[in-house]
């Protein structure tokens, strides 16, 4: 990085740290914070979408659909998320390849499972084995996002399901009295009004999601925990220009501070959002704002 970093063995104090903290490996570590933020940015809307689907399914009047919706919520909620993370990635990957295999290679005659091997035809591979490295990495990242979205979608479904039921009964009755159909009522009355009831649950979910991101390294993504563990470990002079002792505690302290700052910031922003959304709403908080203003 800096010109004076050519021979780190001669450096000490601040100069050494300036060089140490700007090695390619450290830059990768800093980049991993971006990976975490990117994961959050993509997962949050994806989970919300899945959650909406789950909640609508659970409300459905067709029994099998409502069973699927409720089972989805119950199973994911009953099991620790880490248990899902440990085998979802491989399961999803194999599932996708199996589907592509069925479509692309209908006349493939060999079995897909040969012993413990899972083999699909070359055209069904995801990504194709000819694809460049970044495609593979992006694919791995997207599978991780999907896994997160499935798990947190169940939580979001739960929140939205509750919020839909929290919309005052009188509103729905009024809509019926005006002759709106069930789907019209849902689109025009329930969905616009449910958000204020869902927001406390959703902001809680966002906090949980932030705190679940360190599990990313279980999904094979090189995230901040991966780098912190590697960088913090004792380094012998043979394999690095910057030998040092066991510094894992300091790296994890840095991660701790990062997460604390991030959750604190989120909390502040979400509080403001809640204040805005409750303005003029027929809820206790909305009433309190009205009184304070008057």
């Amino acid at each position: 990085m800096f010109a004076f970093c050519t021979d780190p063995g001669t450096l000490d104090g601040l100069a050494w740290f300036a060089c140490y903290l700007t090695t390619g490996k450290h830059l990768a570590f800093y980049g991993a914070f971006g990976t975490v933020l990117l994961l959050l940015a993509i997962t949050a809307p994806a989970a919300l979408l899945l959650g909406f689907g789950g909640a609508v399914a659970a409300r459905s009047r067709i029994p099998p659909v409502s069973w699927i919706g409720k089972a989805y919520i119950a199973i994911v909620r009953g099991v620790p998320d880490i248990a899902f993370f440990l085998f979802f990635v491989i399961a999803l990957d194999q599932g996708f390849e199996w589907i592509r295999h069925k479509i692309r290679c209908p006349d493939w005659d060999q079995p897909i499972r040969q012993g413990s091997d899972f083999i699909v035809c070359a055209e069904a591979k995801l990504p194709l084995s000819t694809a460049p490295q970044w495609v593979h990495e992006t694919y791995g990242f997207l599978v991780a996002v999907l896994t997160f979205a499935i798990v947190f979608g169940a939580f979001a479904a739960n929140v939205l399901y509750g919020a839909m039921r929290a919309v005052p009964r009188a509103q729905v009755e009024t809509a019926e009295a005006y002759g709106l159909t069930r789907s019209q009522t849902f689109r025009r009355i329930i969905v616009p009004q449910m958000w204020v009831y869902a927001l406390p649950g959703l902001s809680n979910l966002w906090m949980v999601l932030i705190k679940a991101t360190p599990l990313l390294f279980l999904l094979g993504v090189e995230d901040i925990v991966y780098w912190a563990r590697d960088l913090g470990g004792t380094k012998t002079p043979q394999f690095t220009d910057y030998p040092h002792g066991d510094w894992r505690m300091w790296y994890f302290l840095a991660l701790l501070v990062f997460y604390l700052a991030f959750t604190k910031l989120s909390e502040t922003v979400l509080d403001r959002l809640m204040t805005r959304l409750t303005r003029g709403q027929a809820t206790l908080a909305g009433e309190a704002q009205r009184k304070a203003g008057a």
Binding site: A212, F252, L256, Y259, T263
Partner: peptide, 9 residues
């Protein structure tokens, strides 16, 4: 902060 990081730390 994440429990996971708390354990490590």
């Amino acid at each position: 902060s994440p429990l996971f990081i708390q354990f490590f730390f």
